[in-house]
Computed example of a mutant assay.
Amino acid sequence: MSVLDYRGLAALDAVVEQGGFERAATALSITQSAVSHRLRALEEATGELLVIRSQPPQATARGHRLIAHYRQVLLLEAGLNAQAPEPAALPQLAIASNADSAATWLLEALASVLTEPACRVDVLLDDQDQTLRQLREGRVVGCITSSPDAVAGTSVVSLGIMSYRCVATPVFARRWFPDGLNPQSAAKAPAVIYNRSDTLHARYLAQMGLNENVPHSYFPSSEGFVAFVQAGFGYGMAPVIQVREELADGRLLDLAPGTQVDVALYWHRWNIETALTRTLNDAIVATAAKWLQQDRASIL
């Protein structure tokens, strides 16, 4: 395909982003049949299927690459616009983040591109081991991930270390761990894990030489996870920066003082240089430096 049809790319992006042809039509202020026609014309021009007609529609690998290209072009065009756009025309920056970063320091970083406002944001939450996939598929302009491996067309910078401790309330600890965290107590005590992709608890138990198969609940919310533990329903791995005060005043106990799981975080971003992306990238790195460990020393 020698010349890209940007009306077709806009339709492709809208169908996937909005989750359907009807919503895409509303977002683009055209008819549903026009969306279908533009997408079909784009697929005929590329000679490939770009969207799997499921519920909701899913982009194919080529579709994701074209969406990524289209969003990069939109960012570049926004950077060329010297005048402040109308609110409805504000560019959108989509980024992927682990939930614990989103619950603690990420909003402070995003304030730099939201206060004027300079753009809109779309924050996609996933496990820190999974967010890089969002960047590879072109869904986001940047991601916070535990992987240091760069993707073609992107840059990567180290953000720091997020440390996790195994915590519980004093009442929970007295009931379930009267003799400390050991093979017998771990086999019976109810744990809480963020979601099925979360490996932190298993990594911690393996590090302690304990069986990774323990009774557990799932609670896929960073704030809700900590509230779950504080309510005495389970014990689990919490980021130190999120429970520092609770550990200091005794509302939560570290079940194995001196033992933690350190997760190194990295910021991956498209190699797109505009005033907006530079502001976002600088803010992400600077804010992370304030909140995250920059070495392996204890932060308590």
Rank of each mutant, 00 (worst) to 15 (best):
L210D: 01
Q58C: 11
S163Q: 13
N281S: 15
V261C: 05
S197Y: 12
E273P: 00
W267C: 02
L80H: 10
M1E: 03
G258C: 05
T154K: 03
W176V: 09
T60W: 02
A78Y: 03
I67D: 04
S163I: 03
L200N: 02
P57E: 01
T277A: 07
M162L: 03
R38D: 11
E108F: 07
A102M: 10
S163F: 01
A103F: 01
W176P: 01
L252E: 06
L247K: 11
P148V: 12
Y164H: 14
M1I: 06
V113I: 15
F219V: 07
M1H: 11
R23W: 11
P239E: 00
R136K: 05
Q230R: 15
P220W: 07
H201I: 09
E223G: 07
Y204I: 05
D122A: 10
I161R: 13
L4R: 10
S197M: 11
R120T: 15
T131K: 02
A118F: 12
E245G: 04
D254N: 13
Q230L: 14
L107H: 14
E223P: 04
R203I: 11
A102I: 04
Q260V: 12
R244L: 06
L80S: 12
P178S: 07
R7Y: 10
R278P: 01
M237R: 07
E43Y: 02
A275R: 13
M162N: 12
P190K: 09
A248S: 09
I52T: 08
A286F: 03
V123P: 13
R203M: 11
D282I: 06
H37G: 01
R40S: 13
W105L: 12
E43M: 06
N98Y: 01
Q18E: 15
D198W: 07
L66S: 09
N281H: 11
L75N: 01
S158K: 06
R269Y: 03
I95C: 04
N211W: 08
M162Y: 00
L132E: 06
R71T: 00
L42V: 02
R120C: 09
F21P: 07
D5K: 09
L42D: 02
R133N: 08
L159M: 00
A59L: 08
E212Y: 06
Q72V: 01
L255V: 08
E223N: 08
L50T: 01
C143A: 14
L4N: 04
R120G: 10
L280A: 06
L106V: 02
D149V: 06
E43D: 03
S155I: 00
A150L: 07
R120I: 10
Q128M: 06
A94F: 04
R174A: 15
A297K: 12
D100L: 03
R296H: 12
D249C: 10
T46M: 08
A289H: 09
V16D: 01
A288Y: 05
T31S: 15
A297P: 05
E116M: 03
R203Y: 08
E137Q: 14
G160E: 05
T26P: 02
G20C: 04
P183G: 11
R139Q: 12
N211D: 15
S185W: 04
A94V: 07
A78K: 00
